[in-house]
């Protein structure tokens, strides 16, 4: 935790957990999907389920999905803006097991693809993403973060880290996860520095890398 997690963020009210955190989660989901969004389903759990309308959590997460940052004054009108952009968004409540009281499940779809993300707003506008599709992750969004899907085979992680190293990018945190041995591996890499387009494209070009997504720090 840094001082600006405590005195900050600068944001649109009324609730750091229910507005700023929700906007961040929506924005990350949108960045992970990285395609034109045609439809979104947003599920509110716990305290979110009880109060999402009054806190404007629906407007905040919608704003995030549209790419707005938590201090963007357009958040207030995001539901209208989403309609204008032709995005069909459904809002529902859900009861999940063993998750933080302020948890969101976001399903995005478009062009025949879909993405499901589970994340929580853990206080003061700070967030954590726990699950992307079936991959367990732990993303705070504070550092430049890269999500890579790759073949689960010897040397693959080494290839990725060498590429990052060759661009002088230091890895702060790294998590590797797979559903089943020898299938697809998921790596979350949090960096100390901002990666340029070139390094991201370089990663995408590697034969056994299936997908690369980048989340700039919020």
């Amino acid at each position: 935790m840094g001082v600006f997690d405590i005195m900050g963020p600068i944001m649109i009210g009324p609730s750091s957990s229910h507005t700023a955190g929700a906007a961040k989660l929506g924005r990350i989901a949108s960045l992970l999907f990285n395609r034109k969004i045609e439809a979104a389903e947003i599920f509110f759990h716990g305290s979110f389920a009880e109060t999402y309308r009054g806190h404007g959590t629906d407007r905040a997460v919608t704003g995030g999905i549209l790419g707005f940052k938590p201090d963007d004054e357009r958040i207030k009108d995001s539901r209208q803006l989403a309609r204008e952009r032709g995005i069909n968004i459904a809002y529902q409540t859900i009861k999940l097991k063993e998750v933080h009281p302020n948890t969101l499940l976001i399903k995005l779809s478009g062009k025949g693809q879909s993405l499901t993300m589970l994340g929580s707003s853990i206080g003061g506008g700070n967030i954590i993403v726990n699950l992307i599709d079936d991959y367990q992750v732990n993303i705070s969004g504070k550092l430049p973060t890269i999500w890579v899907l790759h073949q689960d085979q010897p040397g693959e992680i080494g290839v990725i880290t060498s590429v990052l190293g060759s661009y002088s990018l230091n890895i702060a945190f790294m998590q590797v996860f797979r559903k089943k041995r020898g299938t697809v591996g998921s790596s979350i890499i949090e960096l100390d520095h901002l990666p340029g387009h070139a390094v991201l494209r370089r990663l995408e070009d590697i034969k056994n890398i299936l997908q690369v997504r980048y989340i700039p720090p919020l």
Binding site: I6, G8, M11, G13, P14, S16, T19, I75, G123, G125
Partner: peptide
Amino acid sequence: EVNAGMGKIVAGPTAGSSGII
């Protein structure tokens, strides 16, 4: 009041308590 009106504030430590500091 600004916070409740969906205006811009510094959440410190949270938006709900942003008037105090």
